[in-house]
Design a protein around this nucleic acid. Structure first.
Lengths: 180, 180
DNA sequence: GCCCACATGTAATCAGTTACATGATTCT
DNA sequence: AGAATCATGTAACTGATTACATGTGGGC
């Protein structure tokens, strides 16, 4: 099973949902670290159904096709349970870091502007996440026994990532300015 | 042109190379943020050659085929120059963060062990990167005018990323222990 | 003799994005 | 009347991994 399959199972731990709702749920907070379009989600749900890791109950849809609400099965829960504690393998990809590798081939002014912009964007996103995290703490979501502690944990990673990006981009912009 | 194409051009700013050498060069430091197998690199070099962004000079190879050494052309340098200052679009993917989202469905003991392991791994990688960065500073690579400043900049992002990962994983492991 | 480094490719498959296709309800 | 939201799918294509395929030279 692909990572996306487990991502969908993870989303279903928050309760049954349609493919459409799963794609909405995927937006925040895990969308900061894993995304998929509906065109990838629907076939994946079909595969999960084949495996009997999820089941669908059909109902009246707004369009020409039936609306299907998916729930995890016992087998799905077991598969997820195992996957969750396997050491992760995927390595990150970062286009902005790749660009920094060839920075001496870039126009200094434009490059400085780019990394200042990246730093500013990271600062803005960070502020957003911090505000959301504060709301979550007020709801008690920062305790491991809260049913949506996972949302808080993911947001914390978002905060750490954006902080790292901000620190780095601001440092780089500064270096470029002093080297001009 | 795909991101990989620009990654290869970036690697060629360090001097002409064969496909094989490019795949070696890709290992460190940019391999921490962008990788490709040789099976993806060779066809991509062919596409870059079609575009006249690189040229190959052929020579005797160790195997049945000729060894080709690639160099960037003026057009390649111009294309890279433009790409370097375009705002990056790709969003990161993190399997370990995805797993944290469904943490309440995991076995608490195994999950604690997993995040402790992630934290320990990040600490080890961080120490490695710090040592390498110190060597680079001694070589003067921390100045924007040094021809390999890009290597140092990428390594700095590696340091910030590992620091963020370590902070987060250690925090999460601590939370899981206190919630047990 | 066997493994490793050097060196280059192709084929099959899987993962992910973009575009195409349909249609009801609700809000402006 | 037109746009947005709800809702589900397929087709075509691009990007990336795994597996197949070949062959030399050097070290143990």
């Amino acid at each position: 099973m692909s990572t996306l399959g487990f991502a969908l199972l993870s989303l279903l731990t928050r309760g049954p949902a349609t493919g459409y709702e799963l794609s909405q749920r995927m937006k925040a907070p895990i969308g900061h670290f894993w995304t998929a379009k509906h065109s990838q989600i629907y076939p994946e749900l079909a595969r999960l159904t084949e495996l009997d890791w999820v089941t669908a109950t059909e109902g009246e849809g707004p369009g020409p096709r039936a609306k299907k609400t998916y729930s995890m099965t016992r087998a799905g829960r077991e598969a997820l349970h195992e996957w969750l504690v396997q050491p992760p393998v995927s390595q990150p990809r970062s286009e902005v870091t790749l660009k920094a590798y060839a920075i001496n081939s870039a126009d200094p002014g434009a490059a400085t502007a780019l990394y200042e912009q990246v730093a500013a964007g990271a600062a803005a996103t960070l502020a957003e996440y911090e505000a959301e995290a504060e709301l979550m703490r007020q709801a008690g979501m920062d305790h491991a026994d809260h049913p949506r502690f996972g949302n808080y944990a993911v947001l914390r990673m978002g905060i750490e990532s954006q902080r790292a990006l901000h620190t780095w981009a601001a440092w780089l912009a500064g270096r470029l300015r002093s080297g001009m």
